[in-house]
């Protein structure tokens, strides 16, 4: 089942910092939810194909023609930090 190390491993994969209290709570909650979900492991699914889009779609690609895109200044409008016309991110060398 789910233990503390698994929770910490998954949190790292999800780029999510968790408090000690959250780790403890999620260890219990995820275990409980997964127990319900396990019911599908008992189904015989031999030869059953997976479904992603339930309506058959073919030729969903649009024509590849250039058109105006979002202007740079609009794309940067909501950025927490802008540097040299781009998105700024923290750097250990800064």
């Amino acid at each position: 089942m789910i233990d503390r190390d698994t929770v910490l491993h998954v949190a790292r994969l999800a780029r999510l910092e968790l408090s000690e209290e959250e780790v403890a709570r999620l260890t219990i909650e995820l275990g409980a939810v997964l127990e319900h979900i396990e019911t599908i492991s008992r189904l015989d699914l031999e030869g059953v194909p997976p479904t992603s889009h339930v309506i058959d779609v073919t030729g969903a690609l649009r024509a590849d023609e250039p058109e105006p895109c979002l202007p740079r200044e609009r794309a940067l409008e909501s950025a927490p930090e802008v540097l040299d016309d781009g998105f700024a991110v923290p750097s250990p060398q800064a």
């Binding site: 599908i40 492991s41 189904l43 699914l45 059953v48 194909p49 997976p50 479904t51 992603s52 339930v54």
Partner: peptide, 10 residues
Amino acid sequence: RAQRVRTLIA
């Protein structure tokens, strides 16, 4: 598996 269950439900 969940995607296959989805097929069965459809």
